[in-house]
């Protein structure tokens, strides 16, 4: 062994910003996360030039996976052009030299904050979801050591109690986003704050979903063809947001998840939340030839 064999050639910067040991650690933890679907795996969560809580978990996974041939799409609440999404996309492109896209169909890697695109993801695509709070049990058990024991025992009685109390108090389940879901019949996970509308898209999906919480240092995954069942009572069926009948006032597209935009007169108009889907619908309306992918929801209904 010589000194030469122990060193590497000088590089101005680690490819993809993260250094080798950070990537290897995330790789090892991703392997375990995929092997035990929905189970939170602790990881080191290195510093990235972004404040924790702004997508650092998702960013670290993306930076570990990228290579110069991988086309990256980043969305924030469905929009490709929000500040958070644009900054993360530009950062990944700058440190990894990756091509970027806004089109879900063209993307190899999709990093997302709080939405799953409306077009069906393929089996070669990876969806990376940013997670603010990875612990579904936190509202019922703030002590994370006890929560870990509850996961180990599959002790989810309090989750059901919480849902029951909501129904008794309000007549319906009040959980809007991060709807607790049972993965592979064993671990309850939070699907990150995606709306209820998006949770059925994870069930037996073709794509790989990796959820990463940078601030909380937890990573978990939903492999393809894995059961993801929202917690419901058999006599109170799971309900998605009532958006099936809404029409986007800009693109005219109908039957997708909408953003409500309040108007001065007290009424509101709606705009499709998946911005690129809206853009493509407008371009098609204007006579351009645009490829629209198959959507999860058809006529506002998720086929079962």
């Amino acid at each position: 062994m010589t000194l030469q064999t122990l060193t590497k050639p000088w590089e101005p910067m680690s490819y993809g910003f993260l250094d080798g040991s950070a990537k290897r650690e995330i790789r090892r933890k991703m392997i375990k996360a995929i092997a035990v679907p929905g189970c939170q795996m602790p990881y080191a969560s290195r510093e990235v030039p972004m404040a924790r809580g702004w997508g650092t978990g998702g960013l670290q996974v993306s930076l570990t996976l990228v290579n110069p041939a991988m086309r990256v799409k980043v969305i924030d609440q469905g929009a490709d052009d929000s500040v958070n999404a644009a900054s993360i996309r530009r950062f990944i492109a700058r440190v990894a030299g990756t091509p970027t896209t806004m089109d879900t169909l063209e993307a190899d890697l999709i990093q997302s904050r709080h939405r799953i695109p409306e077009e069906v993801l393929r089996e070669d695509q990876v969806l990376v979801l940013q997670v603010p709070n990875p612990e579904p049990l936190r509202p019922v058990q703030p002590n994370m050591s006890i929560a870990r024991q509850m996961h180990a025992d599959a002790d989810y009685g309090r989750m059901w109690l919480q849902l029951y109390e909501q129904i008794v108090r309000s007549g319906r389940v009040m959980q809007g986003a991060s709807y607790p879901s049972l993965v592979h019949g064993r671990h309850v996970m939070t699907p990150s704050p995606i709306p209820r509308w998006d949770v059925p898209k994870l069930h037996m999906a073709k794509h790989l979903t990796i959820l990463s919480a940078g601030r909380e240092k937890r990573i978990f995954a939903v492999p393809p063809f894995t059961r993801v069942e929202p917690l419901v009572f058999s006599d109170v069926p799971y309900k998605v947001e009532d958006h099936a009948g809404l029409t986007c006032h800009r693109s005219g597209t109908r039957g997708f998840f909408m953003n409500e935009i309040p108007q001065d007169d007290g009424s509101s108009v709606f705009e499709v939340s998946d911005s690129e889907w809206g853009v493509k619908a407008i371009r098609r309306r204007d006579g351009e030839e645009v490829a629209l992918g198959e959507t999860w929801y058809k006529n506002g209904k998720m086929p079962s």
Binding site: P9, R24, N67, P68, G97
Partner: peptide
């Protein structure tokens, strides 16, 4: 343009 080293590309 950042370019991965051979080692990095192989590990990836």
């Amino acid at each position: 343009q950042p370019v991965p080293s051979d080692f990095e590309a192989r590990c990836n």
